[in-house]
Design a protein around this nucleic acid. Structure first.
Length: 150
DNA sequence: GCCAACGTTGGC
DNA sequence: GCCAACGTTGGC
């Protein structure tokens, strides 16, 4: 069992949207480091939902990997802004696992709170720049975050 | 392979 | 809306 964190702007897709849909394919990621994390995900792994450009920005809930290693179909769609002419169906460049809603936290774990967690100090989430949209977390990091929501 | 120019992300 | 930090692109 592994732990991850995935970012999204609530304007594009929020945890409330996910709660209605119950599950979604996490597509549209076009960064190789983030893609590598998406590709590693296995069914049953936990993914925290981080809302960026939000009031406040922070972790709003959790998800579970329902189907791992699915191709991101947008890479084959010529009309999509995520179309990738180099991608082939035999060996898709971009991966989009299906994530299902697990839980919405009662309160947002804000970026300020995350910064105050010593266990998170070395996480990519808090590193300067903070632009990676899919981050893997250690068990300790995950548990430190979940502890705040209790 | 270097690096400048450019585009994007994300906090504020 | 601003801007710093980063990733990507393309000329050489």
């Amino acid at each position: 069992m592994k732990y991850y964190l995935a970012k999204c702007e609530p304007e594009a897709y929020s945890i409330d949207d996910l709660k209605v849909d119950m599950s979604t394919q996490w597509d549209g990621v076009r960064n190789y480091q983030a893609r590598n994390n998406l590709r590693e995900m296995e069914k049953g792994d936990i993914v925290l939902f981080y809302q960026s450009n939000a009031e406040p920005s922070g972790i709003v809930g959790s998800m579970e990997v329902a189907e791992a290693k699915l191709p991101d179909t947008l890479q084959f769609d010529k009309r999509s802004e995520y179309y990738d002419p180099k991608a082939t169906k035999e060996s898709p460049t971009w991966i989009a696992p299906r994530l299902k809603f697990k839980q919405k936290f009662k309160e947002v774990v804000s970026l300020d709170e995350l910064r105050s967690l010593k266990k998170l100090a070395s996480s990519a989430l808090l590193r300067k720049g903070n632009r990676l949209s899919v981050i893997s977390l250690t068990k300790e990091e995950y548990e430190a975050i979940v502890e705040v929501t209790k």
